[in-house]
């Protein structure tokens, strides 16, 4: 399963080039892989194990082994204890998925032009702009999200500005809506899209573009045939960095969405806290991971099929 993950973020690896380095390939990988296996894979296996256990009375898990947590995902117990098909959790997953997709699309739509603009500047301006775009993210995410609450609330700055300018007469409720959640998510994850895209478009050879123009390509054609294909690895990397955390986010839904609807993140959180059902929480997390992995495999297949060999 993990093998399928990699191609999604990485197009076909470069051809082997350095014999001296090649001998050391494995050695170079060992430290990072060892750290991740020990502190990530092993704990994850424990979590996977949890999903097949029974919930302890006060949180935690106990025997016996059971697949109840997974059954519950699709079927609910009626009052007479019979199983009925239930779409509650599928609905929660679908909502989070749609929101994460939209977040990613907006991040690309904002991040790509921005990264391109920065890459087109002079060296000094480039560094300064790159720094400027990351600076806001040195403050805590939670604090920034609260600042959006201050801006968006009924008596907030945005409504104040709108009313002062005479555009509106009564406050508009921006907060506690899906749009507010989306805004918060795009805001939270934007730099994770901009940085990887910048890292690749910055390397685009200007001669390619000049050549394109010499062949009578307009701006749009240059973008479609040169910039976009070359930016794609960056967009793929950025998508991974944005989509997955957006899928599991619960800060923005809670603060900006008013906690009216459950998202996957809040569902899992709830199971590990007040609902005290760790196996179900672990199962929801495992299903989430499985879906992400399937998505990555599909992405990898498509790219694999489309790439010229």
């Amino acid at each position: 399963m993990s093998a399928a993950l990699a191609p999604a973020i990485t197009p076909a690896p470069a051809a082997p080039t350095a014999p001296g380095l090649a001998a050391r390939t494995v050695t170079l990988l060992v430290p990072a892989v060892a750290v991740i296996v020990l502190f990530m894979v092993v704990p994850m296996l424990i979590a996977a194990g949890y999903s097949f256990l029974t919930a302890g009375a006060y949180g935690g898990v106990r025997l016996p082994l059971t697949a109840d947590a997974y059954v519950r995902f699709l079927f609910d117990r009626d009052l007479d204890d019979s199983l009925i098909f239930d779409t509650t959790y599928i609905g929660i997953f679908a909502r989070s998925f749609v929101l994460a997709v939209l977040t990613t699309l907006f991040c690309v739509a904002i991040g790509l032009p921005l990264a391109w603009f920065i890459a087109c500047r002079e060296r000094r301006a480039r560094d300064a702009l790159l720094l400027a775009i990351t600076i806001p993210f040195w403050t805590n995410l939670l604090v920034r999200t609260y600042c959006w609450v201050l801006i968006l609330r009924d008596q907030g700055l945005l409504n104040g500005a709108l009313q002062a300018s005479g555009l509106t007469s009564a406050p508009i409720t921006f907060l506690y809506s899906n749009e507010a959640i989306l805004l918060g998510l795009v805001y939270s994850f934007l730099p994770f899209m901009v940085l990887p895209i910048y890292a690749v478009v910055e390397k685009i050879d200007p001669r390619l573009i000049e050549a394109g123009h010499d062949l009578y390509a307009g701006r749009l054609a240059v973008f479609r045939h040169i910039v976009w294909p070359l930016a794609r690895p960056g967009i793929a990397a950025g998508t991974l960095l944005v989509f997955v955390p957006a899928l599991g986010a619960f800060l923005a839904p809670d603060l900006l969405g008013g906690g009216k609807k459950l998202m996957i993140g809040s569902l899992i959180q709830l199971q590990f806290t007040s609902s005290r059902n760790w196996p179900f929480g672990a199962a929801a997390a495992m299903i989430l991971m499985a879906l992400v992995l399937v998505g990555l495999v599909v992405m990898a297949r498509r790219r694999g099929a489309g790439a010229p060999r």
């Binding site: 399928a4 991740i36 990530m40 994850m44 599991g248 993140g265 899992i268 991971m289």
Partner: peptide, 15 residues
């Protein structure tokens, strides 16, 4: 390759 990307796809609460 997959292993080093794993922390990205694991939901934070589970981690």
């Amino acid at each position: 390759e997959g292993l080093v990307a794993l922390p990205l796809v694991a939901p934070e609460i589970v981690t």
